[in-house]
Design a protein around this nucleic acid. Structure first.
Lengths: 155, 155
DNA sequence: TGACAGTAGGTGTTATGACACTTATTATCC
DNA sequence: GGATAATAAGTGTCATAACACCTACTGTCA
C-alpha cells in the first residue's frame, strides 16, 4: 500500500477546490443557524418555515398576500404552500379570504394571534442572532454580507 | 396614516440588525446552492443527503463506518440514519455487516456500484461548483471561507 | 360569444424527516 | 460475577415535503 493511498484512507481529503470548500462552508453554517432557530421556535409549535411565513405576512400587514406571493418570498423552495398555510390557519395564526374581484385569489393575513406571536418572538430572535454572530465585528459582517450577495449573483 | 407606517406596509423592512442580515444571507445562499445540487442528483435517484453519505463512505474506504459515525459526519442533523441507509442499501449502493468483535456495531461500506456512482458524479459536481462560484476570485472565496468558519466558532 | 390558454389554488399519493420508545450487546462497579 | 448503566441499532407512528395531477376562474382573440 502506497503512502498516498494510506493517507487517502486515514484522513479523507476534505475539499477538492476552493469553490467546493466555500459551498460546504455556506451549507454547514446555514445548517447550524437553522438548527438553532428550529429549537427556539419549537416551544411555540412553529417550524422555521412557519416563522418565516409569519414574518412575511407581518410585512404585508392588512393587505395580506396570496398563496403564491407567500411561497415565492420564502427562503426555501416550498411546493406545498397550501397545506403549510392550512396548518397555520388551523392554529389560528392566519386567516384566508377568497377575493371578490378576482375569485382565483385567496388572500392570507395574520390574525391578531399570529401578529402577537411574531411580535413576541422578535426580542428572542434578535437575542439569538446576537449570541450567534455577536462575536464578529460590524466590518466583518458587512464583508460577509457583501461576499454572500455576490456569491448569489453571478454575472 | 403616517409616512413611516405607509413605508412599513409598502416595503417590509428587510433586516433589523446586521446579525440578522448575515444569518438570512447565509441561509438563503445555502438554500440556493442546495437546490442546485438536489437537481443535479435527481436524475441519479439521489438526494443531497444520500450523496453526502456516498462521499463520507468513500472517505472511509474499506474500513467503513458504523451508523452513528455516518450520521455525525453529515452536514445536516439526521435523526433517522437507519432508514436513510436502508434505502441506499436497497438501491445497492452500500452494504452493511454486523461486527464480530462488538456485535452492537454494524459497519457500512460502499459497494462497487456506490463507489462507481460517486466517482462518476465527481466531475459533474466539480463543474457545478465552478459554475456557481467561479465568478469570484480566490481571494474573495478565501475571505468568505475564513469569515464563515469564524461565524461557526464563537469564542 | 365561445373556445382556449394562462393563472391561482387545491388534492392524492408517496417518500422522507422527526420523535419517542425498544432491543441487543458491552462496559462498569460493587 | 451479577446488577446496572451505557452504547449501538432499529422500530412505530405521526408530521411534513415532494411530485404529479385536478378544478375554478379570468383574459384573449378568432
Amino acid at each position: 500500500m502506497t503512502a498516498t493511498l494510506r493517507d487517502e484512507i486515514r484522513q479523507r481529503k476534505p475539499f477538492r477546490s476552493i469553490y467546493e470548500e466555500a459551498a460546504l462552508n455556506i451549507v454547514r453554517t446555514a445548517a447550524l443557524l437553522s438548527a438553532d432557530f428550529e429549537q427556539i421556535f419549537k416551544p411555540y409549535g412553529l417550524t422555521g418555515t412557519q416563522y418565516n411565513v409569519l414574518r412575511i405576512l407581518r410585512g404585508a400587514d392588512e393587505a395580506g398576500l396570496c398563496r403564491n406571493d407567500v411561497r415565492d418570498r420564502l427562503l426555501t423552495r416550498m411546493p406545498d404552500a397550501t397545506r403549510l398555510l392550512d396548518r397555520m390557519e388551523k392554529a389560528g395564526l392566519l386567516s384566508r379570504a377568497r377575493e371578490q374581484e378576482d375569485r382565483r385569489l385567496v388572500t392570507t393575513r395574520l390574525t391578531k394571534k399570529g401578529r402577537q406571536l411574531v411580535d413576541d418572538l422578535d426580542p428572542i430572535v434578535a437575542r439569538q442572532h446576537r449570541e450567534r454572530l455577536g462575536h464578529m465585528s460590524d466590518k466583518q459582517l458587512a464583508t460577509l454580507n457583501s461576499l454572500l450577495t455576490q456569491a448569489r449573483h453571478p454575472e
